Simulated assay, not measured.
Amino acid sequence: MDKRPELNKSLDKETFLNFYYLKEELASFCRENGLPVSGGKLDLTDRIAHYLDTGEVLRPNSTSKTISKSDTAKITESTPIESNFVCSEKHRAFFKEKIGQSFTFNVAFQKWLKANEGKTYSQAIEAYAQILEDKKKKKTVIDKQFEYNSYIRDFFADNEGRPLDEAIKCWKYKKGLPGHNRYEKSDLIALSRV
């Protein structure tokens, strides 16, 4: 199958997972078929794959919670990182005060916070500094839901000086093919097509 199939109920799970679909397309499919549309692109992809495979509608995990006094308590460097960490304005204010106004909740730091429940905020500050240091030394890993960003970055790394419209043309060609969506030199064939 050379051409990307239309996303509909007749697709099988393997074919669906073998092609690239925009988040808007995934959300539209979910709406049309009574699936929840909450969450990120990976959540929608997993939900649709499960639906195509089993016919069952997966419900998102409930994340509603009541606010306790400990949720609103002041954060200190010795405060343990809470379970189910959520980036909030009180957390942002704490880190900006301790780290500086340049602080941002980058993806690597968010993952660290979520994976290190019980460690202290002092350790989180140290981890943030280490993450920034590591970032300077190596290429940043871009999460799967940002395949376009990874592709464009890798295109320019291999084709310095080429314009963005050529990178986008190659990306559109690539996402229409079955398989992975990582940049390959052979994708440049898209530039010779009319």
Rank of each mutant, 00 (worst) to 15 (best):
T104S: 13
Q130S: 15
K90W: 09
F109H: 08
K90G: 06
A93E: 14
E117Q: 13
K111T: 13
I125R: 04
F95N: 00
E133C: 09
A108S: 12
S102R: 10
D134N: 13
S88E: 08
T104F: 10
D134H: 07
Y128P: 02
C87F: 14
Y128C: 05
H91F: 12
W112Q: 05
N116E: 02
A127I: 00
V107A: 10
G100T: 03
L113Q: 00
C87E: 14
E117C: 08
I125F: 01
A124C: 06
S102M: 08
G118A: 06
I131G: 02
T104P: 05
Y128W: 05
E117P: 05
N106S: 04
F94Q: 02
A129T: 15
F105I: 12
E133I: 10
S88A: 13
K111G: 15
E126V: 11
L132K: 09
R92V: 10
G100P: 00
K90N: 11
E133F: 14
T120I: 06
I99G: 03
K98I: 12
I131V: 07
K96E: 03
F103S: 03
F109D: 00
A115I: 06
E97M: 15
F105G: 01
K135F: 08
A93K: 11
E133A: 10
F103E: 00
A127K: 05
